[in-house]
Design a protein around this nucleic acid. Structure first.
Lengths: 147, 147
DNA sequence: TAAGTGTATTAAGTATATTGATACACTTAA
DNA sequence: TTAAGTGTATCAATATACTTAATACACTTA
C-alpha cells in the first residue's frame, strides 16, 4: 500500500499520514472503503500498531477518515474532507490576512495578489473538484517582495 | 528594561525577543539608540550572555536591530523593520493563498474576506504608520467557517 | 466465545532545544 | 600599546519534548 523511507528525517507516523493523505486525495483509495486494520498495516510495515494508530488519528483529525470502534477506519467521502480541508486553510488565511492588515499592508495589495495567484495557470474554477497536487507545494512559488 | 516571567513555558531568549520587539514597535526604544550590551542585560536579568545574544540575533534577523561588532547593537529606524516585517508576512500570505487556491476556495471568497477584515475598525489607511498592537493577536479573531 | 477491530496508558529510548562556560575577535579611549 | 568595553563562535551539560514500543482494555461481529 505504501512504503516508508527510513532516510526521511520526519517521524514514521507523519510520513505515513502524508502518504495516505496523498493516496486519498488522488483517488487511490475509494471513499467508504475500509482502511487496513492498524495491526495488519503495522505488520506489513514492521512498525508498532500505535504508530499506525497515530497516523490514522491524524487523518481522522483532518477529516479524511472516520472510525467505528471495533469495526475499523473508513475513507471519508470527498465532500467531507474537502470541506474540512478548506476550513483549516480558511482559518489560517484569515489569521495571516489579519496580521497583514496590522503590519500596514494595503488591502489593494492583497487584492492584486489574489488576482495574480488565481489568474495564473490551472485554477479551480467554480465548484468542480480536482486537486492539482496533494501537498501544499505551490507555497514554494512565493518569492516576491511586497515592495 | 524588561522583566522575565519564569512561569512562562517558552524559552527565555524567545520571551526576551518578544518583549523587546514590542518595546521597539511601540516606540519605547528610540531608533538609532544603542541597546544594552549583551553582558549588562544578562547581568541585569541574571541569565547567560548567550541567551541575550540569541534574542538580539533574532531581532536582528527580523530587522529590528543592526549590529556593529565591537560597538554594540542599535535599534533600526522604523522604515527598515516595517518593510522587513511586511515582507515576512507577505511571503506567508502568498503561500497560504496558494494553498487556498489548491484547496478550491474561490478567489471571490478571499476578496470578500479582505473587505471584511480591512473594513472593520481601525485599519491602517494610506501609508501612515502606527501599529494597533505589537503582536499578531488579531489572529484570534478568525473564527468563522468557510461555508 | 473467539477473533477481529480501535483505544488508552505507561515506559523506554532518542532526538532536539536550551542554557551555560569559555575563549576569541573587534572597537575605542586612555 | 594596552585595557576595558563590545559582539561572536564553539563546545558541553542538561532539560525537555518527541517518538516509538509494550501491554492491557473495550467494542463488534460471526
Amino acid at each position: 500500500m505504501i512504503v516508508l523511507d527510513y532516510r526521511d528525517k520526519r517521524p514514521l507516523y507523519e510520513q505515513m499520514a502524508e502518504k495516505l493523505e496523498r493516496l486519498i486525495v488522488n483517488g487511490g483509495l475509494e471513499p467508504l472503503t475500509r482502511m487496513p486494520s492498524v495491526r495488519s498495516l503495522a505488520m506489513e510495515l514492521s512498525v508498532n500498531p500505535n504508530t499506525v494508530q497515530r497516523a490514522y488519528a491524524q487523518l481522522e483529525q483532518d477529516g479524511y477518515l472516520y472510525t467505528v470502534s471495533g469495526r475499523g477506519s473508513f475513507v471519508t467521502v470527498q465532500e467531507e474532507w474537502r470541506e474540512s480541508r478548506q476550513n483549516r486553510i480558511w482559518q489560517e488565511w484569515r489569521a495571516v490576512t489579519g496580521q497583514a492588515r496590522e503590519a500596514g499592508i494595503p488591502g489593494e495589495r492583497l487584492m492584486a495578489g489574489i488576482r495574480e495567484i488565481y489568474g495564473s495557470g490551472s485554477g479551480v474554477e467554480g465548484k468542480c473538484g480536482g486537486e492539482s497536487n496533494a501537498d501544499g507545494s505551490a507555497a514554494a512559488a512565493a518569492q516576491e517582495g511586497v515592495k
